[in-house]
Protein backbone atom coordinates (compact mmCIF):
# COMPACT_ATOMS: atom_id res chain seq x y z
CA UNK A 1 0.00 0.00 0.00
CA UNK A 2 0.92 3.63 -0.21
CA UNK A 3 3.12 5.26 2.32
CA UNK A 4 1.59 8.68 1.83
CA UNK A 5 -2.04 9.35 2.68
CA UNK A 6 -4.37 10.11 -0.24
CA UNK A 7 -5.46 13.71 0.00
CA UNK A 8 -8.88 14.33 -1.53
CA UNK A 9 -9.40 18.01 -0.74
CA UNK A 10 -6.18 19.74 -1.74
CA UNK A 11 -7.09 23.12 -0.25
CA UNK A 12 -7.70 21.84 3.28
CA UNK A 13 -5.58 18.67 3.01
CA UNK A 14 -8.41 16.34 3.98
CA UNK A 15 -7.61 12.70 3.34
CA UNK A 16 -9.63 9.88 1.85
CA UNK A 17 -9.43 8.13 5.23
CA UNK A 18 -11.01 11.04 7.12
CA UNK A 19 -13.82 11.32 4.60
CA UNK A 20 -14.40 7.58 4.50
CA UNK A 21 -14.58 7.38 8.30
CA UNK A 22 -16.98 10.30 8.43
CA UNK A 23 -19.33 8.77 5.86
CA UNK A 24 -19.22 5.38 7.55
CA UNK A 25 -19.84 6.81 10.99
CA UNK A 26 -22.59 9.28 10.13
CA UNK A 27 -24.04 7.86 6.86
CA UNK A 28 -24.15 11.42 5.71
CA UNK A 29 -24.55 13.62 2.65
CA UNK A 30 -21.78 15.50 0.85
CA UNK A 31 -22.83 18.63 2.66
CA UNK A 32 -22.48 17.00 6.05
CA UNK A 33 -19.07 15.61 5.04
CA UNK A 34 -18.06 19.14 4.14
CA UNK A 35 -19.27 20.59 7.43
CA UNK A 36 -17.69 17.84 9.52
CA UNK A 37 -14.30 17.63 7.79
CA UNK A 38 -13.87 20.94 5.88
CA UNK A 39 -13.41 18.96 2.65
CA UNK A 40 -14.55 21.24 -0.17
CA UNK A 41 -14.48 24.33 2.02
CA UNK A 42 -11.14 25.79 0.95
CA UNK A 43 -10.00 28.49 -1.43
CA UNK A 44 -11.26 26.80 -4.59
CA UNK A 45 -14.79 26.59 -3.21
CA UNK A 46 -14.86 22.83 -3.70
CA UNK A 47 -14.53 23.15 -7.46
CA UNK A 48 -11.70 20.61 -7.56
CA UNK A 49 -12.84 17.84 -5.20
CA UNK A 50 -16.63 18.07 -5.08
CA UNK A 51 -17.18 15.33 -7.66
CA UNK A 52 -14.90 12.99 -5.72
CA UNK A 53 -16.73 13.68 -2.46
CA UNK A 54 -20.08 13.04 -4.17
CA UNK A 55 -18.78 9.76 -5.56
CA UNK A 56 -17.42 8.63 -2.19
CA UNK A 57 -20.70 9.47 -0.50
CA UNK A 58 -22.64 7.50 -3.08
CA UNK A 59 -20.29 4.48 -3.13
CA UNK A 60 -20.05 4.28 0.64
CA UNK A 61 -23.79 4.22 1.16
CA UNK A 62 -24.57 7.87 1.83
CA UNK A 63 -26.96 9.84 -0.36
CA UNK A 64 -27.47 8.73 -3.99
CA UNK A 65 -26.93 11.17 -6.84
CA UNK A 66 -30.08 13.11 -7.66
CA UNK A 67 -30.90 15.97 -9.99
CA UNK A 68 -30.06 18.40 -7.21
CA UNK A 69 -26.47 19.64 -7.06
CA UNK A 70 -25.24 17.88 -3.88
CA UNK A 71 -22.93 20.59 -2.58
CA UNK A 72 -24.73 23.86 -3.15
CA UNK A 73 -22.84 26.76 -4.69
CA UNK A 74 -22.97 30.02 -2.80
CA UNK A 75 -21.74 33.41 -3.85
CA UNK A 76 -19.10 34.68 -4.02
CA UNK A 77 -17.98 31.85 -6.32
CA UNK A 78 -14.50 33.38 -6.38
CA UNK A 79 -12.65 34.66 -3.32
CA UNK A 80 -12.89 38.44 -3.44
CA UNK A 81 -11.82 41.13 -1.04
CA UNK A 82 -14.29 43.09 1.03
CA UNK A 83 -13.26 46.06 -1.10
CA UNK A 84 -14.49 44.38 -4.28
CA UNK A 85 -17.68 43.26 -2.53
CA UNK A 86 -18.18 46.86 -1.55
CA UNK A 87 -17.90 47.98 -5.17
CA UNK A 88 -14.22 48.88 -5.47
CA UNK A 89 -12.32 47.88 -8.58
CA UNK A 90 -9.66 45.26 -8.15
Amino acid sequence: MSEKPTIVCRCEEITMEEIQETIEQFHCSSREVKLRTRAGMGSCGGRTCRSVIDRLVEELGGATVSNEVPLSYRPPVRPVSFGVLGGAKE
Binding site: R10, C11, E13, G42, S43, C44, R47, T48, P79
Partner: peptide
Protein backbone atom coordinates in the same frame (compact mmCIF):
# COMPACT_ATOMS: atom_id res chain seq x y z
CA UNK B 1 3.55 23.55 4.84
CA UNK B 2 3.57 21.23 1.81
CA UNK B 3 4.88 22.75 -1.44
CA UNK B 4 2.38 23.53 -4.21
CA UNK B 5 2.56 24.56 -7.85
CA UNK B 6 0.13 24.99 -10.71
CA UNK B 7 -2.58 22.35 -10.94
CA UNK B 8 -5.41 23.38 -13.30
CA UNK B 9 -3.69 26.34 -15.01
CA UNK B 10 -7.04 28.00 -15.85
CA UNK B 11 -8.02 29.62 -12.59
CA UNK B 12 -10.28 26.96 -11.10
CA UNK B 13 -8.15 25.43 -8.34
CA UNK B 14 -6.41 28.41 -6.70
CA UNK B 15 -3.33 26.27 -5.99
Amino acid sequence: ETPRGIYCNIGHCFE
